[in-house]
Structures are given as C-alpha cells and as structure tokens.
C-alpha cells in the first residue's frame, strides 16, 4: 500500500512537472525533453511487463490529455517503450546486480549502469514519439538530431531527479 501511494505520487508529480516545467524549457528551439518517463524507469524490475505497460499507457495518455499535442502519441510511445523495458534491462543491467538487490528497483543500481539503462529507454521512447509527432520521414537527419539531443537532455534531467531523490532519502534516515 505504501508503495502504491509512492508511485501514485510520482505519477501525478511527473505529469504535472512535464506540462508546467519541462514543456516550457526552450533554450534550443528544437529541443523538447520528456522527463515524465522517469516513472516507468523506477517501477520494480520484477513487475510483470503487462502491468508496466498498463501503467505506461495511462501515464502517456495523461500527458497527452494535459498537453495540447496529438492525443495518443505519448500513449503509443510509452506503451512501446514499456514493452521493450525488460529487454533493455536484460542488456544493460548485469544479472547479478539486480538479482542480489532486495527490492530491485532502479534506485539501487550503480550510476553508470543507470545512465546507460535510462538513455536507451529514453532514446527508444523519443524516437517513436518524435516520428509520430511529425508522421513523415522527410528530413530524417534533422529529426534524428532532434531525437538524439532531446534524449540526452531528458536523460540528464532524469539522472538529476534520481540523484536528488536519493540524497533526500539518506538525509531522512540519518
């Protein structure tokens, strides 16, 4: 129950932060970071992929509804990324690492591994989302650069959020 409330809070906060903070970041004109998918990254590793997908779909749809873009684009991208989550976990996180952990969420893994895991996931999500947004393969190189740069910035924000939250937790304990 405790966990449920924790994840629900993350869900609501990330959707609101995405709309009212990250959607307003415009220091390079073609850049749009999508940080809300941090939610999908921190779900427990042993959660069933079907549940992960349902949560991701809900998350994407919430962002779709609150932002003025194309309804369904975020939902589609999140679901597809969530579908591939287990595969990404398998190729980035060493088996020993996540089997030995007590609660096995992304909060406990080493920073280097987390960055790789987060970046791959974010890149996949952004790739699908940006292509859905423009619905064409014209100017593909430009779109690809947008995807890559936005993915890097999103990953940076995600790592920062993770770091902040981790420090907060330690302080509470001591």
């Amino acid at each position: 129950m405790n966990d449920f409330i924790k994840y629900l809070l993350w869900f609501v906060c990330l959707v609101l932060l995405q709309e009212f903070l990250f959607n307003n970041i415009q220091f390079i004109h073609f850049l749009s970071p999508y940080v809300y998918i941090y939610m999908i990254l921190i779900l427990p590793f042993n959660m069933h992929p079907a549940s992960v997908m349902l949560i991701s779909f809900g998350l994407g749809l919430s962002v779709d509804i609150i932002s003025a873009g194309i309804l369904g684009a975020h939902a589609a991208a999140c679901t597809a990324a969530a579908f591939c989550r287990n595969f990404i976990i398998k190729i980035t996180i060493p088996r020993v690492e996540y089997e030995s952990m007590s609660t096995s969420t992304a909060m406990q893994i080493k920073l280097k591994i987390f960055i790789l895991y987060a970046f791959l996931f974010v890149f996949l999500h952004h790739f699908i989302l940006f292509l859905l947004e423009i619905l064409s393969l014209n100017n593909f190189i430009f779109t690809f650069v947008r995807i890559l740069v936005s993915s890097i910035i999103s990953t940076v924000f995600i790592v920062l959020i993770k770091h902040l939250f981790k420090r907060e937790k330690k302080r509470n304990i001591s």
Binding site: A50, M53, F57, L71, G72, A75, A76, T79
Partner: peptide, 25 residues
C-alpha cells in the same frame, strides 16, 4: 501471450486516438 496481446490492444487504442485527434480536440 497476455503481454503481447495487451501490447497490441494498447497500441491499437493509441493509434485510433491519434487518427481521431481532431475530433477529440
């Protein structure tokens, strides 16, 4: 195959939404 079936269902819903976007707006 619930994961794959669910995946297909959710993506179909999303695609339907995308194509009905102007109606929703």
């Amino acid at each position: 195959y619930r994961t794959i079936i669910l995946f297909v269902i959710l993506e179909s819903v999303a695609v339907v939404l995308i194509f009905n976007n102007s109606k929703y707006q």
